[in-house]
Every structure is written in structure tokens, then in C-alpha cells.
């Protein structure tokens, strides 16, 4: 939140830096960053709390609808949930070979949860961080050292967390359906047959690892870029002259971003179903 004494356009780099810094436990006290690119001593409280809050919201909605299911007179909320469930179920039916009672819930969870986390991007970029800084200021903290990054999917931990769980399920169902030997054979003889086993191992390993990595990075990249653009548009407030441009660009980007957040959630869900479907096929 900018104040007249502290215009954000005066130091745009700090403004963006501040917005891209997490509320972190176990980070470097000076830089507020983890000490290295992989640092399991650090914990991003804002990412975790927001994703848990949204997961809780989704879980509460699911519980509420599931408890009050009325087949004859569905309420508006049940209608909405029914439409989403039917939509996901239709995707699973179209893509997934055979039947597995877990694929539908996995797809639905990814779609709704990722959508909710992405949708945090549509909250004005300074609203929640500013409010948090104000509240922290009431308790005597320095507002400049209060960090709040509200979009969990702009954090690699979230996207990789989802992708690694999906990857674990891919491996699990591969072994369950094909057996350990069948899965190993896939690494040994795929895609070039039995004479190029070393090449096959490298190729298949890359192919398998590319699945979670592409899932995670695609979502992260899209959401991070989207958030960055919102920040840049927020920087346009340096003069009242450019205010119309800021409003116009903000509205346009927000409208476009509605498409992006939905599409990214949908793509994550769709690819998960496709990958799990491939894991269930004997030969591909």
C-alpha cells in the first residue's frame, strides 16, 4: 500500500522486490531469501497459509454440498458443483482408459484448488500485502519488513508439490498396472528396442521426469508472469496523467487473466489425467 510520503514509483525495484518476497521462516534475516536454491531449512508461511486456506475453502464447500446433496431440488451452489464435477468426470471418461475411482477426485482437486490459488492473482496486488503490513504495524513491526505473497501458484514449492504428487502417482500406477518388471522394461526397451538399452534408459528417464517438471514450470511460469505484469501495471500510478492507462491496462490484463488462470488449472488437470492414463496402458 503506497502512501503519499512513500510513492511506490519512487523506487520501483524495491516495490517489486518487496512484492516478490515471501513471508519466510528460517530465511536469511537480511535478504529474507532462502540461503540457496534448495533450502529445506526455510518455510514460506504465506504460500502455505494461503494454499491451506483455499484448500480449506474448497474442502468446506465440498463437505457442505456433499452433506446437503438433494437429487430432486439442487440449490444453486450444488448446481455449480455438479457442473464442475460432471465436467471433470467427462474429461476423465474421454481421456482415461478403463476405470479408476481415484482419477476423478484427483482431477477435480487439481482443477478447483489450482483455480482458487490462481484466482488470488485477481485480488488487487497491494490489497492483502498492504492490509497485512498495516496490521503488523499496529503490533509494532516495521511494515517494510512484512512480506505477504498471496498467490501460492507463483511459488515453485506449490507447483512442484502438486507435480511431485502427480509424479508419485504415475510411478505407483505404472508399477501397479505393469508390475515392477514391466515398468523397468519400459525404461530398458523404450523407445529404441533392445539394442540401445543405455540410450533407452536416458531417454525414458528424461521423458518421465519431463512430465512433472513441465507441469510445475508451466503453471509457475504463467502465474509468475501474470503477477509480475500486475505489479508493473501497479507501478503506472506515478502520475495522475497515466491513471487512465493504468486502469485500462489493469482491467484488460485482469480480464485476460481470468482466461489464463482457468486455462492453467484445466491444463494441469488434463495433463495429469493423460499421464495417469498412460501409466495404465500396457503398451504405448
Amino acid at each position: 500500500m503506497s502512501t503519499s510520503a512513500d510513492p511506490i514509483s519512487a523506487h520501483p525495484v524495491q516495490y517489486i522486490q518487496h512484492h516478490l518476497t515471501n513471508w519466510c521462516i528460517g530465511c536469511d534475516p537480511e535478504t529474507h531469501k532462502p540461503s540457496s536454491i534448495v533450502d529445506f531449512g526455510a518455510f514460506f508461511l504465506d504460500t502455505f497459509l494461503w494454499s491451506v486456506f483455499l484448500a480449506g475453502l474448497f474442502a468446506w464447500g465440498a463437505w457442505y454440498v456433499g452433506k446437503n446433496l438433494d437429487p430432486d431440488k439442487p440449490g444453486p451452489f450444488q448446481n455449480l458443483v455438479e457442473a464442475i464435477v460432471e465436467f471433470v468426470n467427462q474429461q476423465v471418461k474421454d481421456i482415461f482408459p478403463g476405470s479408476n475411482p481415484y482419477i476423478g477426485p484427483i482431477g477435480l482437486t487439481i482443477f478447483v484448488w489450482v483455480f482458487l490459488m490462481n484466482a488470488m492473482d485477481l485480488v488487487p496486488v497491494d490489497l492483502i500485502p498492504g492490509f497485512t503490513a498495516w496490521v503488523a504495524g499496529l503490533f509494532g513491526a516495521d511494515p517494510h519488513n512484512v512480506y505477504m505473497k498471496v498467490v501460492p501458484t507463483t511459488n515453485l514449492d506449490t507447483t512442484f508439490g502438486l507435480a511431485i504428487v502427480v509424479f508419485a502417482m504415475i510411478v505407483y500406477y505404472n508399477i501397479k498396472v505393469k508390475g515392477f518388471v514391466g515398468y523397468a522394461k519400459q525404461y530398458l526397451f523404450h523407445p529404441f528396442g533392445k539394442f540401445l538399452i543405455p540410450v533407452n534408459i536416458v531417454m525414458t528417464t528424461i521423458e518421465e521426469l519431463a512430465k512433472p517438471v513441465s507441469l510445475a514450470l508451466r503453471l509457475f511460469g504463467n502465474m509468475f508472469a501474470g503477477e509480475l505484469l500486475f505489479l508493473l501495471i501497479a507501478l503506472l500510478s506515478f502520475s495522475y496523467m497515466v491513471l487512465p492507462a493504468q486502469v485500462l491496462l489493469g482491467v484488460l490484463w485482469a480480464i485476460f487473466h481470468i482466461l489464463v488462470i482457468t486455462l492453467q488449472a484445466f491444463i494441469f488437470m488434463l495433463l495429469t489425467i493423460v499421464y495417469l492414463g498412460l501409466a495404465h496402458q500396457e503398451e504405448h
Binding site: 540457496s36 533450502d39 529445506f40 526455510a42 491451506v52 484448500a55 484448488w113 515453485l156 514449492d157 508439490g161
Partner: peptide, 16 residues
């Protein structure tokens, strides 16, 4: 960065 949040997110996802 990859941090301990990853573990938390995985657990939340699985539970969800």
C-alpha cells in the same frame, strides 16, 4: 526456491 513448503504442499494436496 525449493523449500520445506514443498513438503507441506504435498501433504495438503494428498489430504485434499
Amino acid at each position: 526456491n525449493i523449500t520445506a513448503t514443498l513438503i507441506g504442499q504435498m501433504l495438503v494436496f494428498a489430504a485434499l
